[in-house]
């Protein structure tokens, strides 16, 4: 059971004030009244907002008649759904079997130490979210991590940290420019 997800909601309560929920209207129109629509509605919401804030649950419930408890039950059941905002860059460290036997835990530990976040958490500057994922399907490149659309393979802890430091430097420069 993904118990850690239950605690995440309180965090979301504080973080979700500035989200514009009007973008959800077409989605709600599309799925309203259709059976089996909870998962696609939640997937659509997350795709637009990056996560599913409490207010979005409430809006969808009021407008579609879906029960809050049902939606929350589904959202906490599946690994895909996030109840709190994520960083600009989501670092997905593969922990599939092949990566595991090639020491994937070293990568997660090194990044976790550098960014001072635990698995599943986001840095305070909202730049990075560290995530462990099951197989990314690049087993021959193990151990692997994926940031944005880019995959980095045959990593060591140090290389992983350097990649992240470079991203941070670049993103600071982008802000300056």
């Amino acid at each position: 059971m993904r118990i850690q997800r239950l605690q995440a909601v309180h965090q979301a309560d504080r973080d979700s004030d500035a989200v514009n929920l009007d973008v959800l209207d077409p989605l709600i129109r599309k799925y309203k009244g259709k059976p089996g629509s909870i998962i696609p509605i939640l997937q659509g919401t997350q795709e637009m907002l990056g996560f599913i804030p409490k207010e979005a649950f409430e809006k969808i419930s009021t407008e579609t008649g879906l029960k809050l408890s049902d939606m929350y039950g589904v959202a906490t059941f599946y690994a895909q759904f996030r109840l709190k905002p994520v960083g600009k860059y989501v670092i997905k460290v593969c922990h599939g079997t092949a990566c595991h036997v090639q020491n994937a835990h070293v990568i997660t530990e090194a990044i976790s130490e550098t960014l001072d976040v635990k698995d599943g958490e986001t840095t305070t500057d909202r730049l990075f979210t560290l995530e462990s994922v099951a197989c990314l399907g690049c087993c021959s490149l193990a151990p692997v991590m994926m940031i944005g659309g880019n995959t980095y393979g045959k990593l060591t802890g140090k290389e992983a940290v350097n990649i992240i430091k470079n991203i941070r430097i670049q993103s600071v420069e982008n802000v300056k420019n």
Binding site: L136, G137, C138, C139, S140, L141, V144, M146, T151, G153
Partner: peptide, 12 residues
């Protein structure tokens, strides 16, 4: 000339 563009190839 054929390039292999599966997930694994793209990753590489």
């Amino acid at each position: 000339v054929i390039v292999g563009l599966g997930s694994c190839g793209i990753a590489a």
